[in-house]
Design a protein around this nucleic acid. Sequence first.
DNA 1: CGAATGATCGGCT
DNA 2: GCCGATCATTCGA
Length: 211
Amino acid sequence: MALRLKQTYPRLSQSFYSGDDILFQSRCLLGMHLCTFIAGRFTSGAIVEAEAYQAPDDKACHAYGNRLTKRTEVMFRAGGVAYIYLCYGVHHMFNVVTGPAGKAQAILIRAVQPEEGLNHMLQRRKMSKVNSRLTSGPGVLGQALGMHTQYSGAELTAPQTKIWIEDRGFPVEESKIQSGPRVGVASAGHCATWNWRFWISDNPWVSRWRA
DNA sequence: CGAATGATCGGCT
DNA sequence: GCCGATCATTCGA
């Protein structure tokens, strides 16, 4: 059993999360390591695909028009908390809330390249061997990492947090970042054309909707 | 209180 | 490539 090297790498800071440039932050997240320590199981993966959502003008955002509900409330908090919601009754979708308090915006993590805790991910996904279906897509990624709506609002920078993001010092080159329209938001009018989806070009773990 | 909706996935063809 | 599951959330009556 290998030692769990928790805290070996620096976590993204509060100042990063509270920054107010969500497209820049979305690009920055590519290559960062999303980690969870849930039910005694450590799992991690490198972020390879992300999408930005920003109220009040973004029709695809749950907080469009600054709609404040019990579910969207966490998006209005200061950056650095998790926004996790249930989609189609089964998928727990993980987002990173960014920006100052009062401004609802979040980045959906759509795919990760699995790194640590592969056995736990396989078990949670009921799979026998690793392939791109393990973590390529927001729903399956959430399942593999043990995400659950009960953790919505979790503070990513808290000392004992179950969910956090590490900078392991391998930034993705600007030239390898591609962008395009977001997935599944065709009904969002002109917002559907915004290139607010970012991914690492030629990375096999990017979700199947790759452009 | 009832009904529509959805930032998706896996199985089947 | 297509199709249906599945349920919390939201909104309107």
